[in-house]
């Protein structure tokens, strides 16, 4: 009976994951390996293709895979020489703002997923806020991994592939921000988790009882323990030959915290350097006094 309960929890979290996260790992890997049968994603590899791809990036609608390659860049962009330094600076900032919009949407997705974890909404409301504040960026980084390979990453719900080299070429500190995520993702992807494993792992991250400022740790740890059991069982079933996968996965949580700390410092640096930069109030809330 206990194992049956753990399997039921696993199914429940997997369903919540599918409901709340539009681009699953299975779908992302199919796009990256060209097995969807649909058009290949639009590739952004330089400033010119970034200008051309902006209209796709800014389209908030979830695609039905059938996107068109952009015909012509909007007139305002077409008139801009991409060699122009100031203009590419503005373009970088606009791209950064698009990333912010997507991040804000991702926070909503993660919040809805968290609410679906049995027992989460019964926790002290202050503790729910704390768990999300500390968990969301870690979750976003984990969710980036399936979208990435060593050469680049899918963005805009899989409609665009942006090359790693291009991201690296952006001016400081933009150019430095994604490289640690690629390094993490390439290693993380070798674990070959599937979407069901991912759903349970995300729940484990959210239910971390050691977040600063938690008021009532015990019920959080109890919930996490159950999800951990469910994850351990799930991994045994989905990866019977992968020894120590459970332990390896838990070790990733330490790496994640370091990445988040560095990410938040980069954002704080950006805020100081870029006079025109606007940080969304929700992201400000999350990052303020985080680490």
């Amino acid at each position: 009976p206990e194992a049956a309960d753990l399997r039921a929890l696993s199914r429940h979290l997997y369903e919540a994951y599918l409901k709340n996260f539009p681009l699953t790992k299975a779908k992302a890997r199919a796009i990256l390996s060209g097995k969807t049968g649909d058009k290949a994603p639009f590739v952004i590899h330089d400033m010119k293709s970034l200008m051309e791809g902006e209209q796709i990036i800014n389209c908030r609608q979830i695609p039905c895979q059938e996107h068109q390659q952009p015909q012509q860049p909007p007139a305002a962009f077409a008139a801009v020489g991409h060699a122009d330094c100031n203009m590419s600076g503005e373009l970088e900032l606009r791209f950064f703002n698009s990333c912010q919009s997507r991040s804000v949407e991702a926070v909503r997705e993660v919040t809805e997923f968290a609410k679906s974890i049995p027992g989460f909404v019964n926790l002290d409301l202050n503790d729910q806020v704390t768990l999300l504040k500390y968990g969301v960026i870690e979750i976003m980084i984990i969710m980036m991994a399936p979208l990435m390979n060593k050469d680049g990453t899918l963005i805009s719900y899989g409609q665009i592939f942006m090359t790693r080299e291009f991201l690296k070429s952006l001016r400081k500190p933009f150019g430095e921000m994604m490289e640690p995520k690629f390094e993490f993702s390439v290693k993380f992807n070798t674990l070959e988790l599937d979407d069901n494993d991912m759903a349970l792992f995300l729940a484990v991250i959210i239910l971390s009882g050691d977040r600063p400022g938690l008021l009532n740790v015990k019920p959080i740890e109890c919930l996490q323990e159950t999800v951990l059991h469910s994850l351990e069982l799930q991994l045994k079933i989905s990866h019977p030959d992968s020894l120590q996968l459970f332990a390896k996965l838990l070790q990733k949580m330490t790496d994640l915290r370091q990445i988040v700390t560095n990410h938040v410092h980069s954002i704080q640096l950006l805020k100081k350097r870029e006079v025109d930069m606007f940080l969304h109030p929700l992201l400000q809330e999350i990052m303020k006094d985080l680490y």
Partner: peptide
């Protein structure tokens, strides 16, 4: 804490789109 995290708190209480906030 709730006061300092009004939007997060709102998201927890309902599923308002943060983009609309």
């Amino acid at each position: 804490l709730k006061e300092k995290h009004k939007i997060l708190h709102q998201l927890l209480q309902n599923n308002t789109s943060p983009v609309d906030l």
